[in-house]
Nucleic acid binder design. Sequence first.
DNA 1: TTTCATCTTGACCATACGGTCAGGAAACGA
DNA 2: TCGTTTCCTGACCGTATGGTCAAGATGAAA
Lengths: 215, 215
Amino acid sequence: MSGDAQISRIRPGRRTDIRRENERAILDAAEKVFAEAGFGGATMQLIADMAGLPKANLHYYFATKEDLYRRVVQQIFEIWLDAASSFDDAPGPVEGIGAYIDAKMDISRRHPHGSKVWASEVMHGAPVIQDYLETTLRDWTEGRIAVIQRWIDEGKMRPVNPRHLLYMLWATTQHYADFSHQIQTLNGGKPLTDRQWAEAKASVKDMVLRGIGAI
Amino acid sequence: MSGDAQISRIRPGRRTDIRRENERAILDAAEKVFAEAGFGGATMQLIADMAGLPKANLHYYFATKEDLYRRVVQQIFEIWLDAASSFDDAPGPVEGIGAYIDAKMDISRRHPHGSKVWASEVMHGAPVIQDYLETTLRDWTEGRIAVIQRWIDEGKMRPVNPRHLLYMLWATTQHYADFSHQIQTLNGGKPLTDRQWAEAKASVKDMVLRGIGAI
DNA sequence: TTTCATCTTGACCATACGGTCAGGAAACGA
DNA sequence: TCGTTTCCTGACCGTATGGTCAAGATGAAA
């Protein structure tokens, strides 16, 4: 666990805000702790300390550790899906896939913890979000495959396998979040700068879009 | 945890073999349990059951859970490094990177558990193998960047950023191991067939090698 | 056969963890 | 001001886990 202090948290007076703010603080702390320690390694005490609340208070807002974890994972899943809109209403792969890579790379930078929790959940067999994989994600995937196939049919890109293209997009963009520690180590121990993030985005877009013959 | 039975284990009579076989059975079981449950979620009892040995016997061969985990991670790291040889002695990117993708994809298929343990270790900040990242992996990376740069200088591929190319190779190939559960779900719940694995390898090689202008 | 090192294992222990609860404090509406 | 709901929290509990240990079984060397 890193040595940084607890999540910033304000203490509003209004009743409804109390609940909202405390749940927010707990979810933020939980996301970070679950990402850094895994579900099994995370403890309610650690999350409580980072949220700046006594442990018993967590159980007032979230019945069990599993409930809290489920909420964290669902939250991440929705962020993933929001990035999907980049695909829609795009005239071709350069705009659609280019925007999707931009969006996913931004998420990797802004929500690295969430991405790790998602990766960990899937690696452990998706015990909590298996139904999401089988419904929402599958539908989303089929829809995008159809879009990509249409672009191929229209001659806007080479006839690559759309499914493996999607896997490459997910893998490459999420790698910058999930393996951020390794990347930072190979970057002299320093986090990527704004310029380096821009370079990463440009490199990924360049290699992918050329790889599929869109440019 | 999946419901499959314990790791196959033979019971040799010879003294030296006893140690070797038991360590092998324990390491195999540990790799699987650590991959499926994470370090914190794994229990020595679970590993012992899967190895077909009493828990106390694990502690005879491996002093602590950390020791056992460290051995598992080191084992995986060496497998990664062996695949590096694909890069060496290649006349150009088509052969070198093509062979590297082949090797990494084969590892993803044959050692999915190891890949997951590695991913989990890095995601949690590499508490056990940080020194490997800073020495062996960094050196290896710098060496391959130099090779790629040479290929670029010789006009054998486009001038892409070699570092981000390596990240894309790692991300894409390891995705098929780390996210195998998600891939299987999106494949109708069935593991990829031989034919599908071949298709995956071909797709990755095609997109990457075209992306870097090697073909 | 005897001796010795290696291997095996059930029983046990201290600790840490998720979760509970009762009693009090604070906010809100009337 | 008063009553009610919501929020807060220290103290506590049962369980599961990593690890220990001492006594016994087994194989190899003499």
